[in-house]
């Protein structure tokens, strides 16, 4: 068993878990943060993407023990209280989700994407950057639109903060 302490959405969380526990199960089963999903077992679908120390990772392929000491942000921690993150708002505005299952991973991937590329995203880049996220409902059309829209708005937010 491993004693694991991870700061999740700003709150330090300590649990004793089996060493084989994956970060996604630490979040879902031990912390009750069920917004992060598991859609495959080969690290391809991206439903489990969270941010660890500021970057997107597939939480189904990270051991909780290996994440000991890390800071993790999940879909539950993205909004500022009742105020949605611009990416969340854009997914709703552009109908970038249907069943909602891939959505948390999509949004976390998209936020990471914009953080790395700033406002310099075009459709081709967005589609390429979504390499690790499967959606079976939307055909990606509206996801791409949402990300492109949010990237403009997030760029504005970042500039305003500086």
């Amino acid at each position: 068993m491993a004693n694991v302490t991870i700061t999740v959405n700003g709150k330090s969380e300590s649990r004793e878990v089996e060493d084989r526990t994956l970060l996604v199960h630490f979040l879902r089963d031990h912390l009750g943060l069920t917004g992060t999903h598991v859609g495959c077992d080969t690290s391809q679908c991206g439903a489990c993407v969270v941010h660890m120390d500021g970057i997107a990772v597939k939480s189904c392929t990270v051991l909780a023990a290996a994440a000991d000491g890390a800071e993790v942000v999940t879909i539950e921690g993205l909004a500022d209280g009742d105020e949605l993150h611009p990416m969340q708002a854009a997914f709703r505005e552009h109908h970038g989700l249907q069943c909602g299952f891939c959505t948390p991973g999509m949004i976390m991937t998209a936020v990471d994407m914009v953080q790395r590329h700033g406002g310099n995203l075009d459709e081709k880049t967005v589609r390429h950057e979504l390499e690790g996220n499967y959606c079976r409902c939307t055909g990606y059309h509206n996801i791409v639109k949402a990300i492109l829209d949010a990237s403009g708005k997030m760029g504005g937010v970042q500039q305003a903060a500086e």
Partner: peptide, 19 residues
């Protein structure tokens, strides 16, 4: 009309069977 169901999905509050 934008979807009424979206808020729970985009904030991680959807409730699926595994949840």
């Amino acid at each position: 009309v934008t979807r009424k169901e979206d808020k729970r999905f985009i904030t991680g509050r959807g409730r699926y069977t595994d949840d």
